[in-house]
């Protein structure tokens, strides 16, 4: 019985996720080119709604009669499952094989891409991090731009040659900036970096991403969730660049900081020499370089304004209804 339930969850989740992703992509055409924050919100829904709707459907099935639960159905997943596993036609086995392969491959990608890096992260250098007057001044300048809003995170510098800045900590996040980045950036660019990290907090910070990651983990086998999560990570970075441009009122500084990082990244790769670089490092480096390239391109087209998310609340019931019909 539980195998049927698992198969039902996998297929429902797959169809709902894929449909939500198509809906999300089509909306860009329907509502015009909106801000990256708007797109990131929709991508979050692609990850949240399939799980949320499936749980609601299970509860409704227990509470209401079968007849009530069977109304308003666009796609009868049980019937799809029965057709795939049914006898008397030759399609069942190839479809099962294809789905099994797809689900296994997606789960493997999830483990390699999203789980393994969690264990590989180096945190030793962070223990010797210290506050820095330049960072404190930068923080004050941004607070001024935000008309009195305090930046609810501590800023510290840590020893590393690489160019890095990130938030760490779920409930009391700390912004760590590498000494390498500090030495490369001027004050305006440093403001842009802090503005970018503040934007991450504005959009929910590490805690929100952890919740989203958890929902992604529940859908580890779903290719639509894989696409949505990677797109969300990229789009969130662009949304933060966009908001940082609005906070600092200086998008050029953001662009310049990104370009410096890009040039440094490229020269590091050239200096290190291709034969010495492992395949894994090379893949990560290329991925980061591509991401930076896209952010630089995106920032030139971005709307530097506070994101207007009003329309998302009108769209929310539409997606909920659409996915409710898949069961």
């Amino acid at each position: 019985m539980w195998t049927h339930w698992v198969a039902s969850f996998l297929l429902t989740n797959f169809v709902q996720g894929a449909l939500a992703l198509v809906w999300c992509a089509g909306l860009r055409g329907a509502v015009g080119a909106r801000s990256y924050a708007f797109r990131a919100r929709l991508l979050e829904w692609v990850l949240i709604f399939p799980v949320f709707v499936f749980v609601l459907q299970q509860v409704a099935q227990q509470i209401f009669s079968a007849q009530t639960a069977d109304s308003f159905v666009f796609a009868r997943i049980d019937l799809w499952l029965a057709s795939i596993s049914g006898e008397g036609h030759g399609l069942g086995f190839p479809i099962k094989l294809a789905l099994g392969f797809l689900w296994t491959l997606t789960t493997l990608i999830f483990v390699v891409q999203e789980v393994a890096p969690l264990f590989a992260r180096q945190t030793g250098a962070l223990q010797t991090s210290v506050p820095h007057p330049r960072l404190e001044q930068s923080k004050l300048r941004i607070c001024k731009n935000l008309s009195g809003v305090t930046l609810a995170f501590a800023v510290r510098v840590y020893e590393e040659e690489g160019l890095n800045a990130f938030l760490k900590g779920l409930f009391r996040p700390v912004l760590y900036v590498s000494s390498g980045l500090m030495s490369k950036l001027n004050d305006e660019e440093l403001d842009a970096v802090l503005g970018h990290e503040w934007a991450h907090l504005y959009y929910g910070g590490p805690l929100r991403m952890l919740v989203i990651w958890f929902l992604r983990a529940l859908q580890a086998a779903n290719p639509a969730a894989l696409i949505a999560f990677r797109s969300l990570v990229e789009t969130r970075e662009k949304a933060c660049d966009e908001l940082a441009g609005w906070i600092t009122k200086n998008p050029e500084a953001m662009l310049s900081a990104l370009r410096k990082t890009q040039v440094a990244d490229l020269s590091k790769a050239v200096a290190s020499g291709a034969p010495k670089v492992g395949a894994r490092e090379e893949i990560i480096r290329r991925g980061e370089a591509l991401s930076l390239q896209e952010r630089v391109a995106a920032i030139q087209l971005a709307e530097f304004d506070r994101p207007n998310m009003g329309l998302t609340w009108v769209l929310l019931p539409m997606l909920a209804l659409l996915l409710w019909g898949i069961r």
Partner: peptide, 28 residues
């Protein structure tokens, strides 16, 4: 436009389901 797009997707998946699996078949 959003309502129309959502409705189009709903109708699309409904049509796919009913064309390939029949209108009245029920599991169980």
């Amino acid at each position: 436009l959003s309502v129309l797009w959502t409705a189009c997707l709903g109708i699309g998946i409904f049509a796919f389901d009913r064309i390939f699996l029949g209108a009245r078949e029920t599991v169980g």
